[in-house]
Design a protein around this nucleic acid. Structure first.
Lengths: 352, 352
DNA sequence: TTGTAGGCGTTATCAT
DNA sequence: ATGATAACGCCTACAA
């Protein structure tokens, strides 16, 4: 029989034990000074002895402050990747509004720096206590983070990595490792000594760093095999997206011996019908559970998806700040989520 | 700019708006009667209008009750599968003890019904407010659930399914579907028209239902292919475990054409060195992130593991009951966790 | 340096 | 049927 919790003492209890008033105990607990050495020692000893845990409920009620958080998010209407974030935000909002945390959300256009800057100004004008945001544009995000710091606004970022520690927390994934995972999956499907292709497909330049990290991880994995495997890279730039089929045909003409594809963005579904019909099926690993990708998973165009769990990222960002304000919890400055492997049989559970 | 939270009203606010005292408002909110029709109507209308949300912090402080929960768990020392549950329990304990929830844990021997019954009696004697337990022994667990219900003890179960709804909640996985996932993985690795084997390896009979469900899912998947695939089953009973190699050799003599294995328990690592060296590598899918399996994953004996996330199951069980008592939250009567696919590159993120 | 007296929002009790 | 009041544990202001 293994007990994990113990009796709870109140400040009044401690005051009684020490033969001193509650006020003095409180001063010791909060290190406000103005306490005699004797009293300080006695109380400190008791606190240690009983491992005093303040009643957060009472503390919170007393404070009775309401905190405002802003979430700054790429518009899900412009890129469905972000849609699940709303669920996560709503869940956290429901959970913490009872504790006085109010959450507002603002969208920016993921293809417009101007839109981002404009929303940032709007958010700053509202003087929230905390901000959770996606630092899609590195320089601008850095500037915004500086503004927040100067205004004593606590920060959490997710999805994209901004900067070491500071006042800001990061929630996301190890992109390099996710590239390795993609490599492992294709290696498992195909065996060794193969020619593999990394395909970068995206409409926006902000993903460049993401894509590079993923590619590095992928190459890292295949390089480690030392079995004669080869990796080539093909980029489908912005304007070519509607001609994905054409572009891929050219690519396959130049590399007829490629036997597996790694698509570094959520645009894997574009390969539907763009792969040479003459070949047997070519295994493809992609990213993100957007509906088009799930359809492609079911139809067999895509074999595996890597899930970045945007819902959970947003949920955690909001939760961390909420718990920080409501319960004085420490904010972890780095939280890497598991890298989920998805196929046509287990995707459903991740849609929630 | 998308707002998700609204202003908060107190009972005093409402009383003032209605020109009535707080006491009457409280009576309406809690349906205690002894309120005139006129007052009732007026207050109800206001409550609806402002969508009144009681301040849970204040309510909780007022109640100021401490709740006791018991977790009844198979002894991790007897089966390492359960070890991560302790982390989950500790995490939930840390989180909720500030809200007056005390959590105790008791272990039973997973191979001894007597031990289970004895611990059950011990738990009942302590008259906790809630119990989270693993119903490993169906009949005995049913009896215990009945005892709890009679003693007004709120229940949550995890890992094994006990019974429809009632007062008890279930947290676990869709085992049938996890069998399908194993099928899909092997199918992805091997292609169609193959002979596959389901291997049941276990020391204890309590897993029988689990293993059956998983096998059904697996056969269901392969049956759906309609491509000439075949599935055979081999059971390594309790006493043969040390002779896994021998038993598997016999099996392969009878079925030399088997090209993939699905091990329905956490004992997949026993196949290390038990597979015919003459063959090329035979793909194996197993269950659970215990250290031996992870080693086997790294060495290449196992290709994929399915993660049942015992840590999260225990965490959620405790959390649900804690939130029920501390915040009057409803307990979901069924929570199916995602079925995580693990290989040698992504296991690390699931260990913590 | 120390003690005391409210008050946060909700609820239970006791008068009215 | 209704209203006033005290109490939960913590914290702050003010008095001693």
């Amino acid at each position: 029989m293994y007990a994990m919790s113990k009796k709870k003492y109140t400040i009044a209890d401690i005051a009684a034990m020490a033969g001193i008033s509650k006020g003095t105990v409180d001063r010791v607990i909060h290190k406000r000074g103005k306490v005699s050495k004797k009293a300080h020692e006695k109380i400190t000893r008791i606190l240690k002895e009983i491992d005093y845990q303040p009643n957060l409920v009472a503390r919170n009620l007393k404070k009775n402050k309401t905190y405002t958080l802003y979430v700054l998010l790429p518009d899900p209407a412009k890129d469905p990747y972000w849609a699940p974030c709303l669920e996560g935000i709503t869940a956290a909002s429901d959970e913490f509004q009872a504790f006085g945390v109010m959450i507002d959300t603002a969208f920016f256009d993921p293809s417009s720096i101007k839109s981002f800057n404009s929303k940032c100004r709007q958010v700053l004008k509202n003087k929230p206590d905390g901000v959770v945001f996606v630092p899609l544009f590195y320089q601008e995000a850095l500037a915004f983070a500086g503004d927040c710091e100067r205004n004593d606004i606590t920060l959490a970022t997710f999805n994209s990595y901004l900067q070491e520690g500071q006042a800001s927390s990061f929630i996301g994934q190890d992109l390099h490792q996710s590239g390795r995972i993609a490599g492992k999956l294709l290696h498992q499907l195909l065996g060794g000594d193969r020619k593999m292709a990394v395909i970068h497909v995206d409409e926006a330049f902000q993903n460049a760093i993401h894509m590079q990290e993923k590619e590095k991880g992928f190459r890292d994995y295949y390089g480690g095999l030392n079995d004669g495997s080869e990796v080539v890279t093909h980029t489908l730039p912005h304007k070519d997206i509607r001609n994905a089929g054409k572009s891929m045909q050219h690519f396959f003409k130049a590399h007829p011996d490629v036997s597996g594809l790694f698509v570094t963005t959520s645009k894997g579904y574009l390969l539907e019908g763009a792969l040479p019909g003459t070949h047997a099926h070519i295994p493809v690993v992609g990213y993100d559970l957007i509906t088009q990708n799930i359809d492609a998973l079911k139809s067999g165009t895509l074999d595996f998806l890597i899930h970045q769990n945007p819902r959970q990222q947003a949920y955690l960002g909001v939760s961390y700040l909420s718990e920080y304000f409501a319960f004085d919890k420490q904010i972890p400055d780095r939280k890497l989520l598991p890298i989920d492997i998805i196929n046509s049989e287990n995707y459903i559970h991740y849609l929630q």
